[in-house]
Design a protein around this nucleic acid. Sequence first.
DNA 1: AGTTGGCACCTAATAATATTCGGAATAATA
DNA 2: TATTATTCCGAATATTATTAGGTGCCAACT
Lengths: 160, 160
Amino acid sequence: MVSSISSLDRTDIAILRVLQAEGRISNVELSDRVHLSPPATLARVRRLEEEGYISGYAAMLNREKLGHDNLALIEIALELHQYERITEVLDQLVAMPEVLECYHVTGEYDYMIKVSTVNNRALDHFIAKRLIPLPGIARIHTSIVLKALKQTTELDLPEP
Amino acid sequence: MVSSISSLDRTDIAILRVLQAEGRISNVELSDRVHLSPPATLARVRRLEEEGYISGYAAMLNREKLGHDNLALIEIALELHQYERITEVLDQLVAMPEVLECYHVTGEYDYMIKVSTVNNRALDHFIAKRLIPLPGIARIHTSIVLKALKQTTELDLPEP
DNA sequence: AGTTGGCACCTAATAATATTCGGAATAATA
DNA sequence: TATTATTCCGAATATTATTAGGTGCCAACT
């Protein structure tokens, strides 16, 4: 996809900046922050949603308080197969709720996934019983996260 | 931190499930979904926020539409130093807006960061001018993300 | 068994916010 | 200059958030 950021003005960027940090802010307060009336602000937010600049809103939960003590980054190398076979495996992989992120990456391995589970035992179960059994998995390498120092979804938005 | 999920009931979990997926849903509709009156629902949401189960709300933006064409996963090995020196470097690292995530991990490298930039040139600039100059960086390894197949923050919440 | 207190809930009322609807100002275009 | 499109504002209305009062339930204790 080619960038369409040029069609956004300073106010749009300001709105996106606020919503990235405070997704549940009221439209009235948002309009205050970006120096626009509530109706004008709301129209812009709707436009940003409809045009796909905003893909959704999410509550960020505290993993550990919710019993997820384990986070792992797993690199996966696939055996060479025809495209269809690979997409099948990937479809299954991304459908797993433990898999929060899945990236096709350059380097020694082909894919990198981020996996959140309640504990080491659940991670072991995920790897042994759900990941390894997928057809075409050649090799995996697991890194356990000892500590998360930063976790944000806030992009550094450029001035238009 | 020890898990405190046991203090949550089915309704709390239901609320968290909905808010993870639709962070900007109105309290009225949320209360409908979890079969509770709006005031009771709102009180629970406030409690979940105050007790830290919900750490915040965020609009999820479309990286590519906003000009961020480049995502990279960078592994970092640090030279052994006293703790203070390391935390200084890490403080600087996590303060960089290009760095979306930073994890202390097991394995050959010590840290893994996720970096979002507008293009390859900006990534090169980040690595050469901002990352490498940090004191104590022994070695890095960069994986470029060719494609993001899944990106969610939705945890798989257990039944209580 | 009856009483008490705490808790979570509901309904109803009020306050605030979201949304719709003219109409005005501005800027681009014919 | 006239016209059109765009974006905005303020006012009106619809919807939602929030507060307040009261009810039912359950457990602990008398």
